[in-house]
Design a protein around this nucleic acid. Sequence first.
DNA 1: ATGTCTTTGTGAACGCGTGCACAAAGATGG
DNA 2: CCATCTTTGTGCACGCGTTCACAAAGACAT
Lengths: 282, 282
Amino acid sequence: MATGRTHRPATRSRGIPEATVARLPLYLRALTALSERSVPTVSSEELATAAGVNSAKLRKDFSYLGSYGTRGVGYDVEYLVYQISRELGLTQDWPVVIVGIGNLGAALANYGGFASRGFRVAALIDADPAMAGKPVAGIAVQHTDELEKIIDDNGVSIGVIATPAGAAQQVCDRLVAAGITSILNFAPTVLSVPEGVDVRKVDLSIELQILAFHEQRKAGEEATPPERETAGTGEPGVATTPKPSSAASHRPAAGGSGGTGGHSVDGNRQGPDGDVPAVMPA
Amino acid sequence: MATGRTHRPATRSRGIPEATVARLPLYLRALTALSERSVPTVSSEELATAAGVNSAKLRKDFSYLGSYGTRGVGYDVEYLVYQISRELGLTQDWPVVIVGIGNLGAALANYGGFASRGFRVAALIDADPAMAGKPVAGIAVQHTDELEKIIDDNGVSIGVIATPAGAAQQVCDRLVAAGITSILNFAPTVLSVPEGVDVRKVDLSIELQILAFHEQRKAGEEATPPERETAGTGEPGVATTPKPSSAASHRPAAGGSGGTGGHSVDGNRQGPDGDVPAVMPA
DNA sequence: ATGTCTTTGTGAACGCGTGCACAAAGATGG
DNA sequence: CCATCTTTGTGCACGCGTTCACAAAGACAT
Ligand SMILES: NC(=O)c1ccc[n+]([C@@H]2O[C@H](COP(=O)([O-])OP(=O)(O)OC[C@H]3O[C@@H](n4cnc5c(N)ncnc54)[C@H](O)[C@@H]3O)[C@@H](O)[C@H]2O)c1
Ligand SMILES: NC(=O)c1ccc[n+]([C@@H]2O[C@H](COP(=O)([O-])OP(=O)(O)OC[C@H]3O[C@@H](n4cnc5c(N)ncnc54)[C@H](O)[C@@H]3O)[C@@H](O)[C@H]2O)c1
């Protein structure tokens, strides 16, 4: 994506909606659990509950894959597991390389959840010479110099970046140049990649900040009664926001907002309905 | 059933769109970087590029916060940093507890990104008696028995779950009972929580599966020309399943740079921004 | 075979989020 | 003080995703 302007209203993609793709792994997980318990079939209602989604949504999602259910009965668990696995491309083996074997990288390497879904850690790569040869999770760490060779030899197309933010773009460039077309980025940086390369990022800090936002709101609503404020007339209600008048000194006093009010939780906050991406293409 | 017509209590509407909230941390990160470089002001265009988003989107996002820009000039970096921080609730300190100090939990504990944004690791909790007292990232791990006391004593409202999936729900219940109202869950499970409690989850496995899906599609399109196919019929029984008989063409030709075969990703890939949630309320 | 009951698959409505395009605001220069 | 230029703030349209609601499909009993 980068700055590429692929402007194209062309919505003719016969593909599966992205939102649906993102839920398939969720269904797969629930189905796998059922499969292990030897449950033969499930209704959309049951499966939806297990996956934590709406049953109508689940049915619509499955409808994009085809008509795999039996009316009056439900879905055949084993069959569905296979179909979803196939759709996600999990029937084949995906070698993965992890770059940056520090705290996080090592944890990822030790994570058993990789192999359980067809992902195989093909190599662990780090720039630190001292790490070279050192075994992590049973695999010897290799030096960055070998990066291109490793990727080429193993036909790796998915890479995980767990290096410090400063090195992420550089590592990314090398991965892409070496043939990687899918990247999972843990470094808090916006990666710029050429078209055709997918980037998903996971940022712990962002997740916490989003939680903090809602947390603050809960606490605020609890104490302060909802304020009347029109939202949409274009008339910004300057309620609690002292806008920098004209060209005056912008910097507001830092200690303004009240203290850390108690957090006596209890707010009967309405269930969070909408959700927001925490992972997005960079 | 009998869901009744629960008239949605009319959207509160005074809030900021979730999608916007999720991007605020992104802007904040970019702004912080600018601030450190002592850049006084930025235009929406510049900042948008730095944050990896569309400038129109950025301006609209900011418009929900208020009119903090100056036409013809741009935004005052320091002022905006403050405003966003305040909006996200980062002007106060958020104590956080991490439960499950294994591979991942330890990595999280060692992560410096916590403190840099007002989050403070108040305690590390683990059920393993052997872990108790053991220092991780400079903090002594405490036993699960102390969970309620720790949360209460420190006024913690945000909890991170990094235990095995099997223990997640149980831990979650205890956290909630103890007063936690925001949870970041790393265990691959759907957590069920009472209203008023926010849950966000990060699932590495799901991310990889989504990448695999696109990866598979890329490989497939390269070999097979876009096929005409209606996506809503359901007529064919097993027609749309051309078994990937061998021909395991894993990744597209590595080649050198710019190897993006012709128009590999074009018809189906969304614009530069289409995204999908990887974190969702459970 | 026929009727009943369960559950799927989906048409349609709705709401949210995104991106365009432009008027207005304000800086800057003469 | 006025003209011009830059950039914000936002009205508007559009497409995606979600949800409702129901006809149709099939299982199962009689
Ligand atoms: N630890 C966490 O829980 C956590 C959470 C969220 C995000 N992150 C992010 O993940 C990244 C890694 O975090 P960490 O705690 O593991 O850091 P770390 O410092 O422990 O590990 C970084 C590793 O990357 C290696 N490295 C540095 N430059 C490299 C390069 N050019 N090529 C290859 N390897 C290189 C280093 O040798 C080191 O081993 C950081 O960007 C961090 O912000 C970490
Ligand atoms: N390691 C990763 O990279 C990674 C990635 C994605 C998801 N995950 C998930 O994160 C979780 C932790 O992964 P890990 O690799 O750190 O596992 P781990 O086995 O290394 O650590 C789990 C820790 O949780 C503790 N624990 C178990 N039950 C507990 C309880 N009831 N209360 C408190 N603590 C308890 C254990 O003592 C152990 O220290 C798992 O659910 C895993 O699926 C891990």
